[in-house]
């Protein structure tokens, strides 16, 4: 059986010039609206730079949902901007269909209760 391709083909990078709050906000807004599932994290999926980001990636991988990842360590403006965008103080942050779902603890709770998988299934984001 052939192995599936990479689950996270998408890495979004903030252009270096975009450091104004408005630019960062627009970048985040576009990332969460253009991609059905987006994870803002420290590091990249195959090399997370923080345990909480690592756990979240593992859960998404376990469920088998495709997601875009944004490494917030690439820019301090982005790191601060994502906290303001969601009014949420910590990283990682998961968005589904433009809506903020939660951070690591919430994702873990929802995974354990089966709620997270149901959410992806309801949104048509899991392979049939």
């Amino acid at each position: 059986m052939l192995t599936e391709g990479p689950v996270w083909p998408l890495t979004w990078n903030l252009p270096m010039s975009e450091t104004l709050d408005a630019d960062v906000h627009a970048f985040i807004d576009k990332a969460v609206k253009d991609n059905p599932v987006v994870l803002f994290m420290k590091g990249v999926p195959d090399q997370p730079a923080c345990g909480f980001s690592a756990v979240t990636v593992q859960i998404l991988d376990q469920i088998g949902v495709d997601f875009a990842a944004v490494n917030i360590l690439q820019s301090d403006a982005l790191r601060q901007g994502i906290k303001a965008y969601s009014d949420w103080p910590t990283i990682p942050q998961l968005y589904v269909k433009g809506e903020f779902i939660g951070g690591c603890d919430i994702i873990r709770e929802m995974y354990q209760s089966g709620e997270l998988k149901s959410l992806f299934a309801e949104q048509g984001l899991l392979p049939a």
Binding site: C50, F52, W88, P89, T90, F100, G102, I106, E109
Partner: peptide, 22 residues
């Protein structure tokens, strides 16, 4: 869960900005 976490985050807002990393 999200609403519960937001309640706690609001209470700890200033500490989260300075002292608490995770």
């Amino acid at each position: 869960p999200l609403a519960r976490h937001r309640m706690v985050n609001a209470l700890l807002k200033s500490a989260l900005e300075t002292d608490i990393h995770a």
